[in-house]
Design a protein around this nucleic acid. Structure first.
Lengths: 251, 251
DNA sequence: AATATTGACTAACAAATGTGAAAGCCGAGC
DNA sequence: GCTCGGCTTTCACATTTGTTAGTCAATATT
């Protein structure tokens, strides 16, 4: 739960009461083993899942089996508030690594967001950031080269992990295989391997299948044409704490 | 406004009063010429735009100019309800063809959705469908071949146009250039040209830059691995009108 | 200890896609 | 009817990426 609060506080400041309400949102965490589905396409889930630990993915498959990863969930991410409107899941969610999730019922969410509008807004914000990320991915897939795309993915994971205190000394735990990276970037495994070697040769990263190290964060971001704006962090807070009137922002 | 109501009624049935409320949402339409931005990245818009006629696009660019189209707006589509939470646009919206838009202020939207929850839900639904579409695009970009991707795009536009009565005899007005298709599919113009010829040779489509004709809709959908489920049409209504109890849907 | 299994990495070749430039087409305006 | 400019189409070639198949090291299984 900590991670959720930490993440949302990049958007807004909570009162102690709100923090307590967030902390009481769900029951005990459930463990999910790697590669296991959490929600499957076609399901009609009755609650949302909060990732407490590990990496989960959103993915979608073609009828002939080709599979595309659509996004990553880290600790503190919530899957699918949207579930309350759409009837059927149009994609699946699965654990990538061992994952701990907490299930939160629809009624629980409703009760708390009704009572604390700020929490409601913060959850909305989180959902919209996720959308923004998927737009950036679309840009990546269409316009970035394979290496830029991979680099960009690493930048994103690194930044998002940092927001929930999962980074230490430019290192993030990232226990995944090259086939996962292939399904993420739309490349073949062989090419993923080539691209990784390229990034290593350039001195930008180290990655051994367990830990990702950004050897040269600035260089990597430049190479990836990474602009963190799309993560919408500290945006609202920045607005509130600014001492400039609106006119100062015109331009 | 008609188109909006027609679209939303694929999700739910409105009362006459609700229909009137929707019809009174906005002021007179404004014309935007082709290729002109409607909202630019970095802006903080104060209302939403309803497309009344023509095609608009959502797009995003890299700092070096490479540009990716992220989605299409047809008549009846609303750009960016999310604007109420996020401060800054992380992408742009532009007219692709001559476009008529109606601007709806935040307060107007709020007033009506507060009063008519069903309208609120319907607008939410439209937003979520848009999201679902961008997930499908991600799948397309990552896993479908160039030709499949193009075919899938045509299927999507065709279906969406049909929902707002823009299709006649397997034909849709689609006045766009091959460079537009290139920016949509992440291909070069030359390759777009090759792919179009391929689809024509297969007898699936005719396209002259003004009108798209599906010569063999079923064949095209099969070729594109198109599954309309992701458009979430008639989903809610289907649920309501079904005479079967929930248990009948299990398994 | 012997034997699978899994995942990373290589290699050689094939297919898909991009590039730059030229040629053709066609409607708008003269 | 001519001309210009914007698109489309073609061409020849370069580059990127995929495929198939193998090796190797580490790890799990028997």
């Amino acid at each position: 739960m900590d991670a959720l609060i930490r993440k949302l506080e990049h958007f807004t400041q909570f009162t102690d009461e709100e923090r307590k309400a967030l902390a009481s949102l769900s029951d005990l965490p459930v463990m999910v083993s790697p590669r296991q589905d959490i929600i499957r396409e076609g399901d009609n889930p009755t609650g949302v899942n909060l990732i407490v630990e590990g990496y989960a993915i959103r993915y979608k498959a073609l009828s002939d089996g080709r599979r595309q990863i659509l996004g990553y969930f880290l600790a503190g991410d919530i899957c699918d508030l949207r579930v309350f409107v759409l009837k059927r899941m149009d994609h699946s969610i699965a654990a990538l690594t061992p994952v701990a999730v907490r299930v939160i019922s629809e009624s629980r969410i409703m009760a708390i967001t009704d009572r604390y509008p700020r929490i409601m807004r913060a959850l909305w914000w989180a959902t919209l950031v996720e959308e923004s990320i998927s737009r950036e991915w679309l840009l990546s897939m269409g316009q970035r080269t394979a290496a830029e795309r991979m680099a960009h993915l690493f930048c994103e994971i690194y930044h998002r992990a940092r927001f929930v205190d999962l980074v230490e000394g430019h290192k993030v735990a990232l226990p995944l295989r090259q086939t996962d990276l292939a399904e993420t970037t739309g490349l073949s495994v062989v090419h993923v391997n080539r691209v990784l070697q390229d990034l290593r040769k350039r001195g930008l990263i180290a990655f051994d299948g367990q830990v990702l190290t950004l050897l040269d964060p600035d260089g990597l971001e430049e190479f990836a044409l990474f602009d963190p704006l799309y993560l919408h962090m500290d945006e609202d807070k920045a607005m509130i704490t600014t001492t400039q009137p609106i006119t100062a922002r015109a331009g």
